[in-house]
């Protein structure tokens, strides 16, 4: 299994960083090799260039950026989604990890 890169984007990259920690923990427990990180909306473009991102998840409060990212990612293989509110609200790492994996495994 190849290493997967999951990028979480929210307004400042703060709230998602907690989620990242929880997702990493879960991934470790499952024995999955994942690179999970969080960035602010303004840093998203840079990170996309620097890293080989497989999936991009938006925090629900910046869901308005979805259209914007859809445009940017149109020519790539990067999957895009909005973190489920309930999982986000409860900082549910395992579930968001599930969501990311599901998105990646979906054929485009």
């Amino acid at each position: 299994m190849t290493k997967r890169t999951i990028m979480l984007v929210c307004s400042a990259g703060m709230s998602t960083s907690l989620l990242v920690t929880k997702m990493q923990k879960e991934a470790e427990a499952r024995g999955e090799e994942c690179d999970i990180f969080a960035v602010s909306a303004s840093d998203a473009d840079n990170s996309l260039k620097e890293k080989d991102v497989d999936v991009l998840l938006l925090g629900p409060q910046v869901r308005f950026m979805k259209a914007q990212f859809e445009g940017k990612l149109a020519e790539t293989n990067i999957a895009l989604g909005i973190i489920d509110m309930k999982d986000y609200g409860m900082m549910n790492g395992p579930k968001v990890l599930d969501q990311a994996i599901t998105l990646m495994d979906q054929p485009d």
């Binding site: 929210c10 400042a12 703060m14 709230s15 925090g59 629900p60 869901r63 509110m85 986000y88 609200g89």
Partner: peptide, 15 residues
């Protein structure tokens, strides 16, 4: 949208 509301709420908390 309530999803956004909660998102903003969490954003503010971290802020």
């Amino acid at each position: 949208d309530p999803a956004v509301t909660s998102g903003i709420l969490i954003h503010l908390a971290f802020l």
